[in-house]
Simulated scan of single mutants.
Amino acid sequence: MFNFNGRRRAVIGVAGAALLTLSLAACGEKESDDQPGAGPSVTADADSALAAKVPDAIKADGVIKVGTDATYAPAEFLDTDGKTVIGFDVELFNAVAQKLGLKAEYEAAPFDAILPGVDSGKYEIGVSSFTINPERMQTVNMVSYFSAGTQWATKAGNPNQVDPDNACGKKIAVQTSTVQVEDLEARSKKCTDAGKPAISIDQYQSQADATAAVVSGKNDAMLADSPVGAYAVQQSNGQLEVLGDIYESAPYGYVVKKDQTAFAEVLQEAVQAVIADGSYEAALKKWGVEGGAISTSAVNPAS
C-alpha cells in the first residue's frame, strides 16, 4: 500500500506564483518582471556521460513523463493559460532533465494519484514536492533535491487568536493527503487528551481552496509547506500573515519506481551536476526559494 500522507513542506522565504487564485488569479494579471518566477527559463547543458546511463525505455523518445499536482504554488501550478505547469519544482526539474538529455513533459494529476501512476508506468517520475519519509521509501525510490518545513498562516492581525501550540477548538484548513494533516491530527489528540475541544480539521483537495477558506474567514488558520504559506501571504495583499516559526524540516524527493534503482542513481548524479554548474542555484533564486537549497543529493536518504 502507498502512504500518501507526508506530501511536502519547505524551509524558506517568499516564493512565486498563483496559489491564492483570489484577486490576482481572478483578474488574470500577469507577473511583472520583478516578481518571483518572472524572466527567462533556467537551462542546463546536457551531460553525455549521464545521458548514456538513462534506461533505454526512458530515453528512447527523448521525453520523460512527469506526474505532478499542479495546485501547489509556488512549487507547481498552472500558468495563466490554464494548462502549462510552472513553478520552482518545474524549473529545477527541467534543468535536471536537460542534464540527462531529456525533455520533461508534465501531466497534472491529483496528488494521491501520482505514486500509483509511477508504479503503473503511467508516469516515469513524480515531481510534486514529495516529502521523503520511511513509509514512502518502502514502495518507491526517492532522490533528494530540496529542503522543506511547515508554516502556519492566518488572517492579518490574527483576529481569532490562533496559537499553533494550542489550537484546540479552532477551525484549521489544510490540503488533503499532506504531512500537515497528520500534524493537525496529533495536535488535536493532545487537545482531547487534555480535556479540551478538538481541532476542527477542514481538508481541501487543493491548497488554493484551503487558503481561500482562511481569507474568507471560514477557517481560522491554515498550515502548509513554508514556501506555500509564505507565497500565500505575499499574494494576499495584506489579508494574511504568517503565524509562528517554520518547523520540522525535511527533504523533498523525486519519485521513481522501486525497481529502477539505476535510474534513481543517475537522477541523483544529475541533481548533483546542476548544483555544481550553478543552474540549481539560479532556478531556486528565480523563484525566491534559495533558502531551501541543499548541497548534496542522495537516493533514499536516512530520515
Rank of each mutant, 00 (worst) to 15 (best):
V66S: 06
A221V: 01
I199Y: 08
K218Q: 15
G16E: 12
A38I: 03
S279L: 06
L24M: 09
L115P: 00
G126L: 04
F111K: 08
T84V: 03
P110S: 10
C168P: 10
A51R: 13
F146H: 14
A213G: 08
L115E: 14
A298R: 11
L19R: 05
A156G: 00
L22P: 01
N158A: 06
L240Y: 10
L243G: 11
S120V: 10
G278P: 09
E241C: 00
I132K: 00
V274G: 06
C191E: 10
Y247H: 11
P36L: 04
C191G: 05
S120C: 07
G238Y: 09
V233F: 08
A173D: 03
S297R: 05
P74Y: 00
L24E: 12
L102E: 08
A38L: 03
P40T: 05
T80W: 07
D220R: 03
S249Q: 13
Y280T: 03
M222K: 00
A52D: 14
A52I: 04
A49L: 14
N158W: 05
D34E: 13
T211S: 09
D45M: 12
Y280L: 02
P55A: 05
W152N: 03
T139H: 14
P197Q: 11
T80C: 07
S188F: 11
C191Q: 07
L223R: 06
E107H: 11
G288L: 03
A113H: 13
N237M: 11
K196I: 01
A109C: 02
P36C: 09
P110W: 10
P134Q: 12
E265R: 05
N141D: 08
L50R: 05
L102V: 11
K83S: 14
V299S: 03
R8L: 13
L50N: 06
A282V: 07
V181R: 09
I12Q: 11
K286Y: 02
D165L: 07
S177L: 12
G82N: 11
